[in-house]
Amino acid sequence: MRAIQYAAPTTVDDAVSILAEHGPRARMLAGGTDIIVQVREDARDADVLVDAKHIPELTSLTVDADGVTTLGAAVPCYELYNDAQFAAAYPAIVDAARIIGSTGIQGRASVGGNLCNSGPAGDTIPALIVHTAACNISGPGGARQVAVEDFCTAPGRNVLGNGELLVSLTLPAPSAGSGSHYLRFIPRNEMDIAVVGAGAFLQLDGDTISAARVALAAVAPTPLFVREAGDALVGAPADEASFAAAADLARSAASPIDDMRGTVAHRKQLSYVLTQRALRGAAARAQGGSPSNGH
């Protein structure tokens, strides 16, 4: 690896001033499973790494009195699936955290890091979108909040400006009768990058859907929020016909490319099939069960 400088600030303000001083050559280091490899392989032109893991706001997972969760940007994946309260509240995020890389990757890699890496196939990003997560960003100009669906702007790029960092994610309080699910298609069982990924959230009022959100991975330059698929489900019964209609909208919204992982036609079809399955899984969880295709 090229020579780099390393800083371990203990406050957000200190991290901001280092990032602001060094501009794009400075990058935050959370789990490191992407950024260390990218710097080593010269895929990112960075030579100042700012360790996120000594800043309390980035390493803590808290729930306030109203049930709103604040997930520090550097909290590793394993902490989420070992936290029964978090897993019950945000199951799609845990579905994604369990399938990113291997056990060893999940011991370091964070949801915030996955989001800031801003890959089109980032598994946690559709899961965050369907849970209506918001990014808490701090920078030289103060703090601001951005919806996760508006965070990524292009492959590997996002809205973070000079000196800004992702501090945490805010997740709305879970409500009774809701459920979510994220799944992806890969040619093997584990340790791969999504050909397509799909996340869904459903809020049920009896058998009727009162709120719904759908998002896809790896079918566009950024993870894709399919607002119209969720909107079409509101007021509809939670049944196969509704799910198929929403999945049709997801297929139409997908604008994938041909690459070594799959073709446009394959990815369009997967957008349909996986959206259906994500909705079935979300409905099963909303009704107290579990997705039949989950592990």
Binding site: A8, I36, T103, G104, G107
Partner: peptide, 14 residues
């Protein structure tokens, strides 16, 4: 926690 030591900086082990 199980980790890949190639994806951790030595200085992070302090």
């Amino acid at each position: 926690r199980l980790v890949n030591s190639c994806c951790v900086l030595g200085v992070e082990a302090a």
